[in-house]
Structures are given as C-alpha cells and as structure tokens.
C-alpha cells in the first residue's frame, strides 16, 4: 500500500499530512447548546409526523438510554427545540430538509458515520455531488415508506427520480430485468459509495458485483479472458440496456471481438493479438465468433475458449 502511494504522486503525502495537522485549528466551534424540549412537546402541533414517526426505525431513540436521546428523538435531528416550542417560529428550529446537504448530513452522520454502510461514503459519487441522506431516506416515514425501501420497484422508482436518463436505458429491448421488478439498482450499485468506480458493489470480498448473480462466470478459469478481469463485464456488455442481443456494445460479434484483437504479432500496443489468419470473415461461419469460442468468459479446458 505504501509503495502504491509513493509510485503515484509522492509529493501528495507530506502535503496531505501537513494539511491534516492544520485541520483541528480550522474546525468550526460548536454552537452553544440551547435547552431541549422533549419529543412530547412536538406532538400537539406536529401530530401527523409524530404519529408516523412512532412507527419509524428511529423511534427507538426515545427509549434507548445508551444513545443519549431518551425522550428527545425529534431533537436528535432537529436540535434543541425549547426556543421553538416557546416562539413557534420556524426560524427557531433546525430543519434538515431546508439545510445545505452537508449541514443536513451532519445530524445523520453524528450516529451513522461509523457504520458498515457508510464505509465507502468518502469516495461515493453521491457524497461528492452533495446528495443529502434525506433525499433518499424519508426520516418521518412509516412502514410503507421505510428508510430502506423495498421491494425492487420502489427502489428503482426512487433512483429514477434523479437518474431518469439511466432508467430510460432499461426501456431498450435487451436489458436487465429492472422494469419487471426482479432487480433493483442497488443490486449492482451501493448508493453509499465504495472503493470501485460508479459505486459498483463487490461479490464476496473483492470480486466484481456481477458475479453475485452470474456465478457461472466466476471462475477462476484455467484460461481467463483478460478483459473480464482487467476492465470488467462492461468491456463487452452494456448492463443498463442495449439494442444488441446479450446487451452487447456492438451489433455484430465479430466487430466487437476484432476491435480489440487487431494487433499484429510482436507489435507494441494494447492487449489483444490478431487471431490466426485462417478465419475468413467473408463466410458467415466466422462472423459469429462465439459460435466456436463458446467459453468466451473463460474456459476450464481450452486456451482458445473452444470448449
């Protein structure tokens, strides 16, 4: 890991450590704490929210002494409410829905920062693009709109609210079965982020997430097809949907293969040597590469993926 760091941009490490040392001095000072009012003070005016919140996963805070919010579950997110109870002014209470995303997330991360679900948060594209927790998690929800929505169709609808362009890809004729509700976006992507690009999930410890369902492509194979390991399934497939059979990124299999397998033997350049010269592309037999190279994801028996 350390040599990995130094091989990249070694000057970054000391710079980063210096910046980190400065950080405490620059950190914001905590505001003076105003008095709390207690959750039951909220009920008279916010009866509907209060009632639905009683069935919410966060309601346990009112009785859980270990968390320090016993009797003050509402104020665990909204902050001390005594002043608001007295004045009834909206300005006197913290409303995460109206705060800037970073500010809103502070109250969530106060408890959830150090949890398994948040481990990829720093690298996650949602955090980078300032998507607040409450944009996906309705905190006041009842059982029907839970913090973690299920089934798949509900998750997909929620993701499509922002990622409408991605959702349209699933309207193509060949796509994963998200429209049918058999899969959801979070089967492949971890919305909280992760070490891989595009918030991709992993299978097991560090295998590509696609293998969670496509176990037959897992291997290891005696003869691996390099793109599967080096750049993943997306090298050849468009997982969100395609007009091409098998969600391939090209309309003809031979084009898809030969776009990579075009390097003359011995010539420098990208991976992918030219296949032997006996294939005659004028013949339909050879324009369908996977008719012979049937184990194209990797073969246990044959170097050329013929069986």
């Amino acid at each position: 890991m350390f040599d990995t760091l130094l091989r990249g941009r070694p000057w970054r490490l000391p710079l980063f450590l210096i910046l980190a040392a400065w950080a405490p001095a620059a950190a914001a000072q905590e505001a003076a704490q105003a008095p709390y009012a207690g959750s039951d003070s909220c009920q008279p005016c916010h009866e509907e929210i209060y009632s639905s919140f009683r069935k919410n996963a966060h309601a346990f805070l009112d009785t859980e002494k270990g968390r320090g919010w016993a009797g003050r579950a509402c104020e665990s997110c909204h902050g001390p409410g005594a002043k608001h109870v007295e004045s009834l002014a909206a300005a006197d209470i913290r409303n995460p829905a109206k705060l800037a995303p970073l500010e809103a997330d502070k109250s969530c991360l106060e408890c959830h920062r150090h949890q398994a679900t948040q481990v990829g948060r720093i690298r996650g594209s949602h955090a980078r693009n300032l998507v607040a927790c409450i944009q996906c998690h309705p905190i006041h929800g009842t059982e029907k709109v839970t913090l973690s929505p299920h089934p798949a169709a509900r998750i997909n609808a929620q993701c499509a609210d922002c990622h409408a362009d991605v959702w349209t890809s699933f309207q193509r004729p060949h796509s994963h079965r998200l429209v049918q509700g058999a899969m959801s976006c979070v089967d492949c992507h971890n919305p909280h982020g992760g070490a891989l690009i595009r918030n991709m999930r992993v299978a097991g410890a560090n295998e590509p997430g696609c293998l969670r369902c496509h176990g037959d492509k897992r291997g290891p194979f005696a003869f691996e097809h390099a793109p599967v390991r080096l750049e993943g399934c997306q090298s050849c497939h468009e997982p969100h949907g395609s007009v091409n059979p098998r969600m391939l990124v090209r309309h003809e299999t031979s084009r898809l293969c030969l776009e990579c397998h075009a390097r003359p033997p011995g010539a420098p350049g990208a991976l992918g040597g030219i296949p032997g010269g006996f294939h005659d592309l004028a013949s339909p037999r050879f324009r369908n590469c996977t008719v012979c190279h049937i184990k194209i994801h990797g073969s246990q028996v044959n170097r050329d993926f013929l069986r």
Binding site: M1, T4, L5, F16, L19, A20, W22, A23, A26, A27, A28, I122, R123, A195, A205, N206, E207, G219, P220, F221, A222, Q300, V301
Partner: peptide, 22 residues
C-alpha cells in the same frame, strides 16, 4: 482433462477527508 486454477486477489483502499476550514 484434469486441472486446477488459483487466483489470489488482494485489494486495499485508504481514504481520508479533511475539513481544513468550514
């Protein structure tokens, strides 16, 4: 045919977020 394939695979990540200023 008889054979064996092994694939040790190691991944590691290290990240940090520092708030230098609010």
């Amino acid at each position: 045919a008889s054979g064996e394939a092994k694939q040790p695979h190691t991944s590691a990540a290290l990240s940090a977020e520092v708030r230098l200023h609010p």
